[in-house]
Design a protein around this nucleic acid. Structure first.
Lengths: 196, 196, 196, 196
DNA sequence: AATGAATGAGAGTTCATTCAT
DNA sequence: GATGAATGAACTCTCATTCAT
């Protein structure tokens, strides 16, 4: 298979997000995705190795942009506290702006089999590294406690944000997600800050 | 179907945990569970409405005990800080002591369809209420900030613990989960504490 | 198995008629019949060899009475024409008086497998013989044409009555079946009568 | 599903007739039909909604041709008496020429559940209408009695033919069905004719 | 490159019958 | 005689993937 890309590649991924968000993971057959993308079933296999590959590519594609945007915004800030706030706000805001994507990443994609979930975790590493960088910078600058466990802290931050977003999706996105960024930020920052 | 219970009922649930942990959700056919439980396929249906019902009952059963044990331990404590520590330690300890159950609850059961996941969330409510009670007690006693958002704080605590456990399971339970209870407790407590 | 009979034997047969008429052949499980009869599933097998045996016995039992009643009424008559009318009227009347039985014999029992249908046909022979006797008497007495083919004529009579009843049952017994006895009688009699 | 038709569509229907005639209704699994038709199991579902749909389509298809052929032959005749004879002869002849089809329509298809039987009855309406047209023409022309009840007469004719054919099939088609057309015709015609 | 008809493996569930009590 | 818990064989339909056109 060629190195992907092309207009149809994007079409198919966007169709997949739409179809999965609407019909749920288990009701999103390849033929449905193909129909939504306006291509034949067989064409899918010119751009993706198999169905699994669509899902992983989808996550790579969307997550790549997701992280990139957060990175950009964060670089404009110097204070670690602000950087963390940006991270949380951007995390929430991006998912709030694309309900379909939020449904897919928080609920539907998690129904995939373990293999895919391990691969998705691989993709997530880029994001976790970004979180790590904030923590490390905070420790270096003495803003956070020097005895912070990097892994545990990273899991705290990611786990909290993820849980908040998942709850929001399961409540059918009925409230404004972004308003929860500040309280979460306060709790996390408070937790990580060295307070004598 | 009678109101369940009975020796076979337990047998089947335990077999389901074992089979799912070993073979994964999608490779755990009813016939496999029946074989492991030492009963005929049809017998399953004398105790459970369908396959989905096994999974939900499994979660109810195990989660009920899980929460009950934490409750008991917590009641023996008076300090809110200690109660939170007990909660986290018991959460980690119980899953560390039953790897199969941990695999099933953290990874496999989440692959089930949305309907089951909503039902599982219903069962989880009992646990979330327990978490709420700690937060509320902390606020009342002035240990935690009075401006804590109950929902967000609950999601912070649960999300963090869940993420920590899931990571541990995905790393094949290679390290000691219980050692992470203390750092998580410190971060959370720190985050929630009123510090002038 | 003993030679059947006994109160429970009747109970089970009546329960079978009721259950099959209400739920249809394919939704009439042995357990349902047992419940309606007020006995345990296993008890059924003390009175009947298997499920098939219930159906055949049911047909034997009900058909025996059915034919017997017609015979009695017919013997009170001397004219062949009247005897044929009695036959048709009694056929219709008895089924009209027991809708459940009509549903079972006309629709549901015919869904059984071929083996049962052959056995049912055996039971029917007694009735067909009765029809034959009327035809033969008519020929002897010179009322019917002497060149009547016995088999064909019997099939004509039975086929016509059966079709009329089946149509009535499929139209949910909405009209009076007995009113059709006279026109059918006239047609059949007319057809069989020697007319120079 | 496209609007059916196509070579495979016919193949599958013919295979179904063959398989059902040979193995009986309840022993005619989809896989058996597929094998006989020389297609994969899944292919069946490209042409039919489900197994039930095969049976109904089979009946529609065969019955459509069946009626059409009778119609054509009848139109070549002018006398009502001859038309009725044609009807009976063609009815018998067509089934005699296709034993498999006769077995399927007279015995096997009747074992299907009530839903299918009602649908089959719908298909039969076309044939019953054809019978009606003969009766009505006979009445108009004064050949038949003017006081004939259309419904009852139709049921007489159809019931008689059906019974004759069913008996022939149950006797394993051992005698010549066509020879019974004349006596049945004579009986029916005689029955319907106005005779002062 | 694009198509879409064809493939065929795979599993949850029912229910007639048995037999230990 | 009566019970009813336990058995286990049996079958339709879906859908990811292929490949001839």
């Amino acid at each position: 298979m060629g190195k992907k890309r092309g207009q149809k590649y994007e079409q198919i991924i966007d169709a997949a997000v739409k179809v999965i968000a609407k019909n749920g993971y288990h009701q999103s057959q390849v033929s449905k995705i193909a129909k939504e993308a306006g291509v034949a079933d067989g064409t899918i296999y010119l751009y993706f190795k198999n169905k699994e590959d669509i899902l992983i590519s989808l996550f790579e594609e969307k997550m790549g942009q997701f992280v990139e945007r957060i990175k950009e915004k964060m670089e404009a800030e110097t204070s670690v506290e602000k950087k963390l706030l940006i991270l949380i706000e951007m995390h929430f805001m991006q998912l709030e702006m694309d309900h379909d994507l939020a449904i897919v990443t928080q609920l539907e994609l998690r129904q995939s089999n373990i293999d895919i979930r391990y691969k998705i975790n691989e993709v997530l590493k880029g994001y976790l590294t970004l979180i790590d960088s904030v923590i490390e910078e905070g420790i270096e600058k003495g803003v956070f406690g020097s005895n912070l466990d990097l892994r545990v802290t990273r899991q705290l931050i990611f786990g909290a944000m993820d849980e908040v977003v998942t709850n929001w999706v399961m409540k059918e996105c009925k409230y404004e997600l972004i308003t929860l960024a500040e309280p979460i930020h306060r709790l996390l920052l408070n937790g990580m800050t060295e307070n004598t």
